[in-house]
Design a protein around this nucleic acid. Sequence first.
DNA 1: CTCAACGTATTT
DNA 2: AAATACGTTGAG
Length: 580
Amino acid sequence: MSSSKGAGPGARRRRTRCRRCRACLRSECGECHFCKDMKKFGGPGRMKQSCLLRQCTAPVLPHTAVCVACGEAGKEEAAAGEDERFDLSLMECSICNEIIHPACLQMGRAEGVVNAEIPNCWECPKCKREGKSSKDVGDVAGKRRADNGDDGLRWKLTVEQAPAKKKGPPATPPGQAPPPEDPPNPAHKRKKERDPPAPDAGARKKIKGGRDKHLKKKPPGASLAPAAPPVPMAAAPDRREKLERFKQMCQLLERVRAAPSSSSSSDTDSESGESSGAAHSPPSPPRLPPPLSFSTSEEEEDDEEDDEDDREDEDEEEDAAGPGKENNHRGAPRVRGGPRRLLGWPLVPSPPKPPALLQLERHVVRPPPASPEPDALPLVPLTIFSVMCCDKRLWTRIDLSRRTSITPSMLSGIIRRQPASLDLSWTSISKKQLMWLLTRLQALRELLLPPPDARPGQTEARGRLQGLWELRLAGLDITEASVRLVARHAPALAKLDLSHCIRELETCERSPASGTRTGSGDPGIRSEGTCSAQTRHLGVRATRERGSQTPGILTSMEAMTINMSCGGKGTVCTGLVDSY
DNA sequence: CTCAACGTATTT
DNA sequence: AAATACGTTGAG
Ligand SMILES: [Zn+2]
Ligand SMILES: [Zn+2]
Ligand SMILES: [Zn+2]
Ligand SMILES: [Zn+2]
């Protein structure tokens, strides 16, 4: 401690908004919680927080930040190549908080692990060498502790807009910051736990601190970098089966690979296997090998109750990484940063989706190892494997339901894949995590945007839920007002799951009688049928009452199925046990 | 200096 | 865990 000047560890520099990301560029909504607190919107101004819709997704170091070693600012603009650019930039360690030019490190920058989701953020070589992990934060220089509510979402979000296309180099356009994304955080669960891993990143379990140091894989933790070590997978007994599946996948890829995925090369990052999640997919095309899921050290077995039948493997195909070269062990500073590992296995690849929207190519990971296009790839198993792990086309659906814990790496993986379908039911995902996801999932974000055809004076915005036909809100403490909004904005809704909702909803009164009409709220929904009390998931079939005075509600809907079982206050369920 | 808000500390 | 409160830093 005490190492250096006040600037060292002691004075952590506060990050500020980048001013360039989508969030930074928009105006305050004036309606969110924090906006309402602002004096300008009539609030008391005590919270002093940024508008929720303006949460910067790529917070940057203050302009006044300087290198702890040489005292100078970042000079990336003066650099020529990518590497030099990195060497001359200022990097802030998420563990010890020191800000330094990688070039000013005598031990070299090779051991540092870059967090590609946050600009100028890494786990410095010093900390890495000492085996520190995000968990150790706090001891450093006696300042800052990480124990506090640090959930890992330290620097708010980052997402970003559109960097230049896939360029190879860092996306740092001239004078600007890269388009990072950011780390999520696991938060919740795990009550205390001490030592081991994970402060912010998901660190899981109790691995003991004692020596993990150089265990082969990196200690979980950090949401940051994926393990970098190239760990050659040693052969293991049960690995055989995995290899088998792996082969199958390769074959499948062969078949599927028709699509040119020039997709982000960066995407190919290394992923190690990591957790799981299973992806289901529509019945269609080529079928992948069985579910299989593997996890790496990260979460894997947390003692929790992850149980699940499936997962149990542990592997790590870790380095599948780099397509090609990538791991450079010494020498190059690598950034394996960004992406943490995988989420799971795709059960079925989505049909060779045309290159339709290669949308967000975001994530520019530092070392853009030019990744060969899949088509051009030599049929190297590992390489193909890594490509598959990140190819967005193979991840149209991601199912993390029932996972007891949603880790940062999972969130990161979700964002990188931009799935068309994402199931997070029963995950107890935290509000922060959900917010984090919402701001960077294009599809969901668009869902909440005003309709493309909305006109200024238009009072009754139609929204983008016109085609929504099923909505599951089970277990939520949803209000009647919310249900009304749903009914109003989702005219095509055919199935609505409100089971396990604690509060009493008047929308569809639950009375023993059948064919009763709705309660006071009456959105024009009438329930009918009989109730089978013992059934846990019985549902209520409600039919829209014709001529309801509530205009717009359930319009165009002849009937919809509403599951209101297990509601609050000992209410009696009404209706038919439907097909739900 | 003023205004915005980050990162913590306290409360709920 | 989430909500609230606020000292203080950072941009202009
Ligand atoms: Zn707002
Ligand atoms: Zn920003
Ligand atoms: Zn320096
Ligand atoms: Zn450090």
